[in-house]
């Protein structure tokens, strides 16, 4: 729990440390159980193909969770996630790694909070951004700021 990013040290344009995920069909089943989303396109290949999909696909919400992991890991235990947005533009299939990436696009203060906006996304092994999104976090300051 020692790691903590401070608002003072954030620079617009800086990148968030990447989080690499290697989703498997087993993980999709675990996620189905943990989330209660038992839609068959995520574990039944025949069902998925009958729905015009090439294979079983990752739950969008699992990809959303990967992006949440990226942001909450970076912001540290004293950061507060304010907003998390994910759009499922492209499908991802188990067996293909995805990497969660992000970049700081804005650093600002609002109503006493020290905020940072990030563009975030999941990228597949071909470099396609299948899941673009954004996040806003509030970060602690090294020193209390004057009013």
């Amino acid at each position: 729990m020692a790691y903590q990013v401070y608002w003072d040290d954030v620079i617009e344009g800086m990148q968030l440390p990447e989080v690499v995920k290697n989703p498997t069909t087993q993980q999709l089943v675990k996620y189905a159980g943990a989330s209660g989303d038992y839609y068959q396109i995520h574990y039944d290949q025949a069902f998925a193909k009958n729905n015009d999909l090439e294979d079983v696909i990752l739950h969008g919400a699992l990809k959303n969770a990967f992006l949440g992991h990226l942001v909450t890991k970076w912001m540290g235990p004293n950061g507060d996630l304010k907003r998390l947005v994910a759009q499922y533009r492209g499908m991802d299939i188990p067996g293909t790694p995805v990497t969660a990436k992000g970049v700081v696009i804005k650093k600002y203060q609002d109503k006493g909070a020290n905020l940072v906006d990030c563009d975030i996304w999941l990228e597949n092994d071909k470099g396609d951004r299948t899941t673009p999104g954004s996040a806003t976090v509030a970060l602690p300051c090294r020193q209390a700021l004057p009013d």
């Binding site: 839609y39 969008g60 507060d80 304010k82 907003r83 998390l84 947005v85 759009q87 999104g133």
Partner: peptide
């Protein structure tokens, strides 16, 4: 009957 999830926008 067929469904896809298009995305989520969370506020905390």
């Amino acid at each position: 009957n067929r469904m896809l999830d298009g995305g989520s926008d969370w506020e905390y």
